[in-house]
């Protein structure tokens, strides 16, 4: 019995030492992770700040108030003007495609000769070869 208690004590002592080491290392790992979280959060905040500035920059560059002076400055080359009424049109104003007339008589004649067993195009090709 005493021996058993002895052994138990030794086992418990070892378990305690292992537990202490484990808890300490866990704590250490947790601290490292917490550091990393802080680092990533900082990076995110910084990137969000950068992003917000880039977005603002993009919005600024897209503003009509920003584009107009550029257009004015280069108007000698671009020659942009307010659209005149005559420059507008709509689909209804487009003329219809000119009607293509099929020469039905000639086609009929062609089909008849093919049906009769003669192939005028085939014989043309044969002549070429």
């Amino acid at each position: 019995m005493i021996r058993f208690v002895h052994r138990l004590n030794i086992v418990l002592a070892i378990v305690a030492v292992i537990a202490v080491v484990a808890v300490y290392s866990q704590k250490h790992v947790a601290e490292l992770t917490a550091d990393e979280i802080v680092r990533i959060e900082r990076a995110m905040a910084r990137q969000q700040a950068d992003l917000s500035i880039l977005k603002a920059d993009w919005a600024y560059l897209n503003q009509p108030t920003h584009i107009q002076p550029i257009v004015d400055r280069h108007n000698e080359v671009l020659n942009l003007q307010v659209a005149k009424v005559a420059q507008f049109g709509n689909f209804a104003d487009l003329p219809m495609r000119p009607q293509q007339r099929l020469d039905t008589d000639a086609l009929d004649a062609l089909f008849e000769t093919i049906e009769a067993g003669e192939d005028p195009i085939g014989s043309l090709l044969e002549d070429l070869l």
């Binding site: 905040a45 969000q48 700040a49 917000s52 500035i53 977005k55 603002a56 919005a59 897209n62 503003q63």
Partner: peptide
């Protein structure tokens, strides 16, 4: 189009 934005 953006008319007002927040920057950090």
């Amino acid at each position: 189009l953006e008319m007002a934005v927040d920057i950090r």
